[in-house]
Design a protein around this nucleic acid. Sequence first.
DNA 1: TGAATATATGAGCAACTATTCATATGTTAA
DNA 2: TTAACATATGAATAGTTGCTCATATATTCA
Lengths: 116, 116
Amino acid sequence: MEEEIKCTVKHEDIIEKVKTKMPKEETLFDIAELFKVFGDTTRMKIVCCLFESEMCVCDIAELINATQSAVSHQLRVLKQAKLVKYRKEGKVVYYSLSDRHVEIIFNMALEHIQEM
Amino acid sequence: MEEEIKCTVKHEDIIEKVKTKMPKEETLFDIAELFKVFGDTTRMKIVCCLFESEMCVCDIAELINATQSAVSHQLRVLKQAKLVKYRKEGKVVYYSLSDRHVEIIFNMALEHIQEM
DNA sequence: TGAATATATGAGCAACTATTCATATGTTAA
DNA sequence: TTAACATATGAATAGTTGCTCATATATTCA
Protein backbone atom coordinates (compact mmCIF):
# COMPACT_ATOMS: atom_id res chain seq x y z
CA MET A 1 0.00 0.00 0.00
CA GLU A 2 2.74 2.48 0.85
CA GLU A 3 5.88 0.80 -0.43
CA GLU A 4 6.09 1.02 -4.18
CA ILE A 5 9.82 0.55 -4.31
CA LYS A 6 10.73 -3.01 -5.15
CA CYS A 7 14.46 -2.42 -4.93
CA THR A 8 16.22 -5.28 -3.20
CA VAL A 9 19.69 -3.83 -3.43
CA LYS A 10 19.36 -1.48 -0.45
CA HIS A 11 22.70 -0.67 1.05
CA GLU A 12 21.16 -0.18 4.47
CA ASP A 13 24.39 0.85 6.16
CA ILE A 14 25.08 3.60 3.64
CA ILE A 15 21.48 4.78 3.72
CA GLU A 16 21.63 5.12 7.49
CA LYS A 17 24.95 6.91 7.46
CA VAL A 18 23.86 9.40 4.81
CA LYS A 19 20.53 9.95 6.52
CA THR A 20 22.23 11.21 9.68
CA LYS A 21 24.40 13.67 7.75
CA MET A 22 21.70 15.14 5.51
CA PRO A 23 20.92 18.80 6.14
CA LYS A 24 17.39 19.58 7.24
CA GLU A 25 14.68 19.65 4.60
CA GLU A 26 14.20 23.34 5.24
CA THR A 27 17.89 24.11 4.78
CA LEU A 28 17.97 22.27 1.49
CA PHE A 29 14.92 24.18 0.36
CA ASP A 30 16.55 27.51 1.23
CA ILE A 31 19.73 26.60 -0.59
CA ALA A 32 17.82 25.60 -3.69
CA GLU A 33 15.89 28.87 -3.52
CA LEU A 34 19.14 30.80 -3.35
CA PHE A 35 20.54 29.00 -6.38
CA LYS A 36 17.29 29.57 -8.21
CA VAL A 37 17.89 33.29 -7.86
CA PHE A 38 21.36 32.86 -9.34
CA GLY A 39 19.97 30.73 -12.13
CA ASP A 40 18.96 33.43 -14.56
CA THR A 41 21.13 35.22 -17.08
CA THR A 42 19.56 38.63 -16.54
CA ARG A 43 20.09 38.45 -12.80
CA MET A 44 23.66 37.23 -13.26
CA LYS A 45 24.32 40.21 -15.51
CA ILE A 46 22.93 42.56 -12.90
CA VAL A 47 25.04 40.95 -10.20
CA CYS A 48 28.15 41.30 -12.38
CA CYS A 49 27.47 44.99 -12.85
CA LEU A 50 27.42 45.43 -9.11
CA PHE A 51 30.81 43.80 -8.56
CA GLU A 52 32.43 47.05 -9.62
CA SER A 53 30.31 49.60 -7.84
CA GLU A 54 26.81 50.55 -6.85
CA MET A 55 24.67 51.44 -9.82
CA CYS A 56 21.31 52.97 -10.59
CA VAL A 57 18.52 51.11 -12.35
CA CYS A 58 18.70 52.89 -15.67
CA ASP A 59 22.47 52.50 -15.93
CA ILE A 60 22.09 48.78 -15.29
CA ALA A 61 19.37 48.60 -17.90
CA GLU A 62 21.55 50.30 -20.49
CA LEU A 63 24.59 48.23 -19.61
CA ILE A 64 22.92 44.88 -19.94
CA ASN A 65 20.61 45.99 -22.72
CA ALA A 66 17.33 45.26 -20.98
CA THR A 67 14.24 47.35 -20.32
CA GLN A 68 13.93 49.36 -17.13
CA SER A 69 10.92 47.28 -16.19
CA ALA A 70 12.69 43.95 -16.61
CA VAL A 71 15.64 45.16 -14.55
CA SER A 72 13.36 46.51 -11.85
CA HIS A 73 11.49 43.21 -11.63
CA GLN A 74 14.72 41.26 -11.34
CA LEU A 75 16.16 43.64 -8.78
CA ARG A 76 13.13 42.93 -6.69
CA VAL A 77 13.90 39.22 -6.81
CA LEU A 78 17.50 39.90 -5.82
CA LYS A 79 16.33 42.20 -3.04
CA GLN A 80 13.92 39.60 -1.67
CA ALA A 81 16.77 37.09 -1.61
CA LYS A 82 18.80 39.69 0.30
CA LEU A 83 21.53 39.60 -2.31
CA VAL A 84 21.36 43.33 -3.01
CA LYS A 85 20.64 46.41 -0.98
CA TYR A 86 19.79 49.93 -2.14
CA ARG A 87 19.86 53.56 -1.21
CA LYS A 88 17.76 56.36 -2.61
CA GLU A 89 19.17 59.66 -3.67
CA GLY A 90 16.36 61.83 -4.87
CA LYS A 91 14.54 60.00 -7.59
CA VAL A 92 17.52 57.76 -8.34
CA VAL A 93 17.90 54.41 -6.60
CA TYR A 94 21.39 52.95 -6.29
CA TYR A 95 21.71 49.21 -5.88
CA SER A 96 24.72 47.34 -4.53
CA LEU A 97 25.58 43.82 -3.40
CA SER A 98 24.66 43.17 0.20
CA ASP A 99 27.73 41.08 0.97
CA ARG A 100 30.80 39.41 -0.52
CA HIS A 101 29.28 35.93 -0.55
CA VAL A 102 27.58 36.73 -3.80
CA GLU A 103 30.89 37.34 -5.52
CA ILE A 104 32.49 34.28 -3.93
CA ILE A 105 29.69 32.00 -5.05
CA PHE A 106 29.81 33.52 -8.52
CA ASN A 107 33.55 32.99 -8.79
CA MET A 108 33.27 29.37 -7.67
CA ALA A 109 30.83 28.72 -10.46
CA LEU A 110 33.08 30.55 -12.90
CA GLU A 111 35.99 28.33 -11.89
CA HIS A 112 33.87 25.24 -12.32
CA ILE A 113 32.76 26.35 -15.78
CA GLN A 114 36.26 27.12 -16.90
CA GLU A 115 37.57 23.73 -15.84
CA MET A 116 35.09 21.82 -17.94
CA MET B 1 13.42 54.56 -32.88
CA GLU B 2 15.97 52.47 -31.06
CA GLU B 3 16.56 54.38 -27.85
CA GLU B 4 13.63 53.93 -25.51
CA ILE B 5 15.62 54.80 -22.42
CA LYS B 6 15.02 58.39 -21.36
CA CYS B 7 17.39 58.22 -18.43
CA THR B 8 19.48 61.35 -18.15
CA VAL B 9 21.43 60.25 -15.10
CA LYS B 10 23.90 58.06 -16.99
CA HIS B 11 27.13 57.70 -15.11
CA GLU B 12 29.09 57.24 -18.34
CA ASP B 13 32.42 56.64 -16.63
CA ILE B 14 31.04 53.85 -14.47
CA ILE B 15 29.17 52.31 -17.38
CA GLU B 16 32.37 52.20 -19.43
CA LYS B 17 34.43 50.78 -16.59
CA VAL B 18 31.92 48.03 -15.83
CA LYS B 19 31.46 47.23 -19.50
CA THR B 20 35.13 46.33 -19.90
CA LYS B 21 35.07 44.03 -16.88
CA MET B 22 31.87 42.16 -17.69
CA PRO B 23 32.32 38.45 -18.49
CA LYS B 24 31.29 37.37 -21.94
CA GLU B 25 27.59 36.87 -22.61
CA GLU B 26 28.25 33.18 -23.18
CA THR B 27 30.07 32.79 -19.87
CA LEU B 28 27.23 34.44 -18.00
CA PHE B 29 24.79 32.14 -19.73
CA ASP B 30 26.78 29.07 -18.73
CA ILE B 31 27.02 30.20 -15.13
CA ALA B 32 23.29 30.83 -14.96
CA GLU B 33 22.69 27.39 -16.45
CA LEU B 34 24.89 25.82 -13.78
CA PHE B 35 23.04 27.58 -10.99
CA LYS B 36 19.74 26.58 -12.56
CA VAL B 37 20.76 22.96 -12.06
CA PHE B 38 21.49 23.69 -8.41
CA GLY B 39 18.21 25.50 -8.05
CA ASP B 40 15.94 22.57 -7.33
CA THR B 41 15.31 20.89 -3.99
CA THR B 42 15.22 17.37 -5.37
CA ARG B 43 18.55 17.82 -7.12
CA MET B 44 20.07 19.38 -4.02
CA LYS B 45 18.95 16.38 -2.00
CA ILE B 46 20.52 14.03 -4.51
CA VAL B 47 23.75 16.00 -4.45
CA CYS B 48 23.78 15.87 -0.64
CA CYS B 49 23.41 12.10 -0.72
CA LEU B 50 26.47 11.85 -2.89
CA PHE B 51 28.70 13.86 -0.56
CA GLU B 52 29.11 10.75 1.56
CA SER B 53 29.62 8.09 -1.05
CA GLU B 54 28.50 6.82 -4.41
CA MET B 55 24.95 5.54 -4.36
CA CYS B 56 22.55 3.64 -6.57
CA VAL B 57 19.33 5.10 -7.93
CA CYS B 58 16.92 3.17 -5.74
CA ASP B 59 18.84 3.96 -2.56
CA ILE B 60 18.75 7.65 -3.44
CA ALA B 61 15.04 7.38 -4.15
CA GLU B 62 14.38 5.81 -0.79
CA LEU B 63 16.61 8.23 1.06
CA ILE B 64 15.04 11.38 -0.31
CA ASN B 65 11.56 9.90 -0.51
CA ALA B 66 11.03 10.33 -4.23
CA THR B 67 10.00 7.96 -7.00
CA GLN B 68 12.63 6.08 -8.95
CA SER B 69 11.46 7.86 -12.08
CA ALA B 70 11.79 11.34 -10.61
CA VAL B 71 15.28 10.57 -9.34
CA SER B 72 16.32 9.12 -12.66
CA HIS B 73 15.08 12.19 -14.52
CA GLN B 74 16.95 14.51 -12.18
CA LEU B 75 20.12 12.43 -12.34
CA ARG B 76 20.00 12.94 -16.06
CA VAL B 77 19.96 16.70 -15.58
CA LEU B 78 22.90 16.47 -13.18
CA LYS B 79 24.72 14.20 -15.60
CA GLN B 80 24.20 16.59 -18.51
CA ALA B 81 25.61 19.38 -16.38
CA LYS B 82 28.60 17.14 -15.68
CA LEU B 83 28.03 17.37 -11.96
CA VAL B 84 27.75 13.61 -11.48
CA LYS B 85 29.30 10.57 -13.06
CA TYR B 86 28.25 6.94 -12.86
CA ARG B 87 29.41 3.37 -13.14
CA LYS B 88 27.36 0.31 -13.89
CA GLU B 89 27.63 -2.89 -11.93
CA GLY B 90 25.26 -5.41 -13.39
CA LYS B 91 21.82 -3.92 -13.40
CA VAL B 92 22.70 -1.43 -10.68
CA VAL B 93 23.99 2.05 -11.56
CA TYR B 94 26.10 3.88 -8.99
CA TYR B 95 26.23 7.66 -9.18
CA SER B 96 28.86 9.91 -7.63
CA LEU B 97 29.93 13.56 -7.78
CA SER B 98 32.25 14.29 -10.66
CA ASP B 99 34.40 16.76 -8.73
CA ARG B 100 34.74 18.64 -5.47
CA HIS B 101 33.51 21.94 -6.88
CA VAL B 102 29.97 20.80 -6.32
CA GLU B 103 30.54 20.44 -2.60
CA ILE B 104 32.42 23.74 -2.39
CA ILE B 105 29.66 25.65 -4.15
CA PHE B 106 27.06 23.96 -1.97
CA ASN B 107 28.92 24.88 1.21
CA MET B 108 29.29 28.50 0.13
CA ALA B 109 25.56 28.73 -0.27
CA LEU B 110 25.05 27.03 3.07
CA GLU B 111 27.29 29.60 4.74
CA HIS B 112 25.41 32.41 3.09
CA ILE B 113 22.07 31.00 4.24
CA GLN B 114 23.26 30.55 7.80
CA GLU B 115 24.49 34.12 8.05
CA MET B 116 21.16 35.63 7.13
C1' DT C 1 1.11 73.50 -9.58
C1' DG C 2 2.32 70.82 -13.63
C1' DA C 3 5.70 68.55 -16.60
C1' DA C 4 9.49 65.53 -16.79
C1' DT C 5 12.09 61.85 -15.02
C1' DA C 6 13.30 57.44 -12.25
C1' DT C 7 11.57 53.55 -10.47
C1' DA C 8 8.04 50.10 -9.10
C1' DT C 9 4.35 47.09 -9.94
C1' DG C 10 0.15 44.41 -11.57
C1' DA C 11 -1.85 41.75 -15.33
C1' DG C 12 -1.32 38.74 -19.03
C1' DC C 13 1.14 35.67 -21.81
C1' DA C 14 4.58 32.48 -23.66
C1' DA C 15 8.12 29.46 -22.42
C1' DC C 16 10.05 26.33 -19.39
C1' DT C 17 10.23 22.62 -15.77
C1' DA C 18 9.37 18.81 -12.40
C1' DT C 19 6.50 15.31 -11.61
C1' DT C 20 3.68 11.20 -12.70
C1' DC C 21 2.34 7.39 -15.45
C1' DA C 22 3.21 4.00 -18.63
C1' DT C 23 6.46 1.57 -20.83
C1' DA C 24 11.05 0.43 -22.82
C1' DT C 25 15.74 -1.29 -22.11
C1' DG C 26 19.09 -4.03 -20.02
C1' DT C 27 20.71 -7.46 -16.66
C1' DT C 28 20.50 -11.53 -13.65
C1' DA C 29 19.05 -15.85 -12.13
C1' DA C 30 16.06 -19.82 -12.22
C1' DT D 1 13.72 -18.74 -22.30
C1' DT D 2 11.13 -16.48 -18.83
C1' DA D 3 10.41 -13.87 -14.64
C1' DA D 4 12.02 -10.37 -11.72
C1' DC D 5 14.41 -6.41 -10.98
C1' DA D 6 17.06 -1.76 -11.81
C1' DT D 7 17.08 1.97 -14.50
C1' DA D 8 15.83 5.10 -18.37
C1' DT D 9 12.72 7.63 -21.03
C1' DG D 10 8.68 9.76 -23.66
C1' DA D 11 4.27 12.04 -23.17
C1' DA D 12 1.13 14.66 -20.64
C1' DT D 13 0.19 17.95 -17.22
C1' DA D 14 0.27 21.35 -13.56
C1' DG D 15 2.91 24.81 -11.76
C1' DT D 16 6.37 28.38 -12.18
C1' DT D 17 8.82 32.20 -14.20
C1' DG D 18 10.49 36.19 -16.96
C1' DC D 19 9.14 39.35 -20.10
C1' DT D 20 6.22 43.18 -21.98
C1' DC D 21 2.86 46.64 -21.66
C1' DA D 22 0.40 49.86 -19.22
C1' DT D 23 0.24 52.47 -15.40
C1' DA D 24 1.18 53.97 -10.58
C1' DT D 25 4.25 56.28 -7.35
C1' DA D 26 7.78 59.43 -6.05
C1' DT D 27 10.83 63.20 -6.79
C1' DT D 28 12.70 67.34 -8.95
C1' DC D 29 12.49 71.55 -11.23
C1' DA D 30 10.52 75.29 -13.80
